[in-house]
Design a protein around this nucleic acid. Structure first.
Lengths: 224, 224
DNA sequence: TTTTGTGAAGCGATTCACAGCA
DNA sequence: TGCTGTGAATCGCTTCACAAAA
């Protein structure tokens, strides 16, 4: 049975996983608004996807729709939440207490999704000890091997690009199992560490590609 | 010829477009370091992709490699830059002067990629007039139809989710052609407006999915 | 010989279309 | 009748493998 589950978990397409948070968010938005059930086409409209895809996505998680009726909102929220591992609050640390690091530290959107910042680190001695929200900025050296509490599984890199790789190595040494990287750098880490990259400039550059196409009259409709 | 170009531009796969900024960044990193030419496999290693994919990606843009040798670094930078539309500096405005909006406003990574912030707006009267870097926070109502200079093509939404759609509508009215949305909301806009979404909480939730899998021993290798 | 550029094969995701159920 | 769950078809991206070129 465990093997069966294993196969099932591994088999959920990454594209589906990436959409689950969106589904969950839309469901939460309508929760408690006199709708106890929602059809795939209604939820598809809310999320901007098509109904068939939504049904297929949900079918990877199990069968919890009712034919002829739709999906029970509360149950669906529970199921998606279970798969996303929101049963417990996850702790993360941020390295880099620049503008971005501090903004992430104060970001309200994390906590109600089950994530909590547990530390903010920087290399600049001038910043150490300063407070950002409830947190005091600590020195990066406090992040040595085994110095991190065992329940801190996620590290966020908000450093300049030139120290991003070093920072990633330190985080892995310190025991994090996954990294969210905001630095514009292609990090190399052990393959058992899950890395996700968010590059703000890249996003604008992709937009720039489409604007360039528009300007030259090469394309009329848009994006992706 | 114009039609031919049109077809070509439209035909570049979105996945390829999304990788171009990364290629460009890696090329810039090695530019001027006594390497005037680079092979697809070398660049592939730097970017973390495979050589065949890199060649195919570049082949969508044209043929500028030399068989037996590789790609001229300077020329490749020029070509990718051309496709990404970095020939001129692009201006953008930010709506929402919270932590995230202010951090984006001060983000150093934009300007050397050819993007420049031209305005920062908020709805909170208490914030109006305050300075963030070189910029003074303006009231959101200054963003009415035609009130935006014609060369401002990009709007960044860093507002709370509940006003994100209204903000998007205002930006489009004001004349922006594309939107980078940081609010956790599925925006609906005219299809000629290019939208890209960056959801910070979603990224953590995707990581959460993998952590949940690890915890239950369901998966061993990682990510995507 | 080395490395590009590219048809062809392979693979995964999306969409279709309908059987299965309430 | 209405909507889910899902095989089958389709579409698009990635990878392979090799001919063409320097």
């Amino acid at each position: 049975m465990k093997l069966e589950q294993k196969v099932k978990h591994a088999k959920i397409p990454p594209t589906t996983v990436a959409r689950l948070p969106l589904y969950l968010r839309c469901l939460r938005n309508i929760q408690g608004k006199n709708v106890d059930s929602i059809s795939s086409s209604e939820l598809a409209k809310l999320t901007g996807h098509n109904a068939a895809q939504l049904r297929k996505d949900l079918s990877y998680l199990g069968e919890f729709g009712t034919r002829g009726v739709g999906y029970d909102v509360d149950e669906l929220i529970g199921q998606i939440g279970k798969w996303l591992g929101t049963t417990s609050v996850r702790q993360f640390v941020i390295v880099g207490a620049g503008h971005l690091g501090q903004a992430l530290c104060s970001y309200k959107g994390f906590i109600n999704k089950g994530f909590q910042v547990a530390g903010l680190y920087d290399a600049d001695p001038a910043k150490i000890g300063k407070r950002v929200g409830d947190l005091e900025i600590r020195h990066i050296d406090d992040l040595g091997p085994q110095k991190l509490a065992g329940d801190i599984e996620i590290g966020i890199i908000a450093t300049p690009a030139d120290v991003a790789q070093t920072t990633a190595d330190m985080l892995v040494q310190a025991g994090v199992k996954s990294i969210l990287n905001f630095a514009p750098a292609a990090l190399k880490v052990d393959k058992c560490v899950c890395i996700r990259n968010v590059d703000l400039a890249t996003e604008l550059q992709i937009i720039g590609f489409h604007l360039a196409g528009l300007e030259h009259g090469l394309i009329s409709d848009c994006c992706n």
